[in-house]
Amino acid sequence: MSNDLVLCTRGLTKHFGKLRAVDHLDLEVRRGDVFGFLGPNGAGKSTTIRMIMGLIRSNEGQIEVLGHNTRRQREAAMRKVGAIVEEPAFYRFLSGRRNLEILSAMSGGAPPQRIDEVLEVVGLTSRARDKVKVYSHGMKQRLGIAQALLPGPELVILDEPTTGLDPQGMREVRELIRDLAARAQVTVFLSSHLLNEVEQVCNRVAVINQGRLLATGDVTSLVRQGSNVRVVTSEPERAALLLQRQDWIGQVQVDGDALRVSAKPEAVPELNALLVQAGHRVSELTPIRASLEDVFFQLMGESNDVKPDSNRIPEAQP
């Protein structure tokens, strides 16, 4: 594993009886990434995170975290990892601070000022001595983030960290994630349903469905790949036939008197030249930027159409 890779899975597979929850999953998270992990419910995201954290044993494949194989050297691998796996859970009969002290002791111990620091970061200083049983869902979520930050992690794994937070809290968590990556050089692995959130904070993403990797790469590249060009010509049907014969052009759809061409924005001049040379009168060529949400639903649609064995989509090209 290259030094640049903080988290790497190879051929990761997990069955629950006949159900294949994760299927030969290859992931690469580089140092400094804010890596979004996307997929619908039941796609295998939480199972993957549980395998990374050693809560679930994989049937096949391997996981390396910070250069350590998690099966053989789990203790070393987890020393600099902080995580929230699904909803954070704490000892309800202990205070927030006492919970952090316990979890810190389990990671080799941290000085009391470190606990003060993380409580400050998540805005729980004034409630730190209250028992967790009186905490709101949002406060537990914040305490979850605090415990993930305790060991001074190099990698933070966050599974739906904004669930249950109010809009202000969600924004604060997003800012915290950005801060972690930018200032503290922490790599963040973020599993989320909120595509908008992922698009805002992540530089790279992986999309999975039915346990399989559909796409992975830079957010900008993926979005660019999912972009379209709107073309208005005098004879849309004939132009569509011409464009469909080009191997550098993706899907071509006739939409009334216009065409929707699956092509990158940089391809506009070439597209124009091709149409003009073929005698078409082009009156409009407009690049339409896709959102991550468009790309996500496009991938979901494709993955549900294709056969399981041909389910792989190659890595997005930057």
Binding site: A76, M78, A89, L103
Partner: peptide, 13 residues
């Protein structure tokens, strides 16, 4: 109480 997954995510085996 789901605290098992919280503690088992920590380094000790």
């Amino acid at each position: 109480d789901h605290t098992l997954r919280t503690v088992l995510c920590r380094p000790p085996s």
